[in-house]
């Protein structure tokens, strides 16, 4: 039982990270109908910047959580700027182009960011200094560390704030208007370009936070870490219904739990025929199932093609 609980905790922590990254995909898709494949690499930039600051300050005598917070203060603006530049350079000139064109530039930007990171930070795995005191407290026999609880609570708070922002504020109104019909939104006095830029900046800030969490939790960062993470988070967004904020959260959590349970129990259940080596397969198996059975995702609405 305690092992089951522990796997559940692992799954929820992993799922919270997926959900946070998935929100970035879903925000951009909801507004522009574009899949920003470079989003995973923005997460990587966030992880790298936090890690660099943490390494510089690890011997300064400052308390660990403060160092991580300072790292985050550097990572969030860096990622915001990256997100803004990506939109300005790679997507805005193609706004009226066929939908395939921005998809290709998205992949191009992703490769560009990876290679830039490789040139700046090198191709080795970088280790995150162990500065956060790791108290583990017991929850019905499952151990939960401070880092894990911060990840889950932090992600939860972010998601609630985002949901509030989109549903209750003026900016949220403008975002939803742009999403429904950019031309009419312009006629109503919405600065569509500003709204889209802000959406990218917002998504990138979430990516920076996710990057900090990933590198602090696993203790490691690498220039191509964003690729797989991005793909999994994209799967989570599609699973929940892309373009839907609650869907991204649900999809992320579900995917995290499915992966963790799958890796933990598949070997025992199949009597060793399939083992934990199939861990990464689950995410994509789930993606295929959802696309076949419910193409609009769990919480997505069946909508007609955009005019």
């Amino acid at each position: 039982m305690e092992i089951f609980l522990q796997q559940l905790v692992n799954g929820v922590v992993l799922g919270s990270i997926y959900a946070l990254v998935a929100l970035g995909y879903t925000l951009v898709y909801g507004i522009m109908g574009l899949i920003n494949f470079a989003h995973g690499d923005v997460v990587m930039i966030g992880a790298m910047v936090t890690l660099t600051v943490a390494r510089l300050l690890s011997n300064s005598g400052l308390p660990g959580p403060l160092i991580v917070l300072l790292g985050l203060l550097a990572a969030v603006p860096t990622c915001m700027a990256t997100g803004y530049l990506i939109e300005r350079i790679a997507y805005r000139p193609l706004r009226n182009a066929p939908r395939l064109a921005p998809l290709i530039t998205a992949i191009g930007v992703s490769i560009l960011l990876q290679n830039l990171a490789m040139m700046i930070w090198g191709r080795e795995y970088l280790s995150f200094p162990q500065i956060i005191p790791s108290h583990a407290f017991s929850f019905f026999g499952a151990s939960i560390s401070t880092t894990q609880s911060i990840i889950v609570i932090g992600s939860g708070v972010m998601m609630v704030c985002l949901s509030f922002l989109v549903k209750k504020t003026k900016l949220g109104n403008a975002m939803r208007a742009t999403s429904q019909n950019p031309e009419v939104a312009t006629l109503m006095g919405v600065e569509v370009n500003t709204v889209i830029s802000l959406t990218f900046i917002l998504g990138s800030a979430l990516a920076a936070i996710a990057g900090m969490m990933v590198s602090a939790y696993y203790g490691i960062a690498h220039y191509d870490m964003g690729f797989m993470l991005g793909l999994k988070a994209f799967t989570a967004a599609v699973l929940g219904g892309i373009g839907n904020i609650e869907g991204a959260v649900l999809g992320g959590l579900l995917l995290g739990i499915i992966e963790s349970m799958g890796a933990g129990y598949l070997g025992t259940l199949t009597g060793g025929v399939m083992g934990s080596n199939y861990q990464d397969v689950f995410a994509f198996f789930v993606l295929i199932l959802v696309l076949v059975l419910r193409p609009s995702g769990l919480l997505g609405e069946r909508v007609g093609e955009r005019p």
């Binding site: 490691i220 861990q279 990464d280």
Partner: peptide
């Protein structure tokens, strides 16, 4: 008897098992 890959970074699930 558990497995991972030479590109993996998350081992919590197999370690918990």
């Amino acid at each position: 008897r558990e497995y991972t890959s030479d590109h993996a970074t998350d081992f919590t699930a197999i370690l918990t098992s």
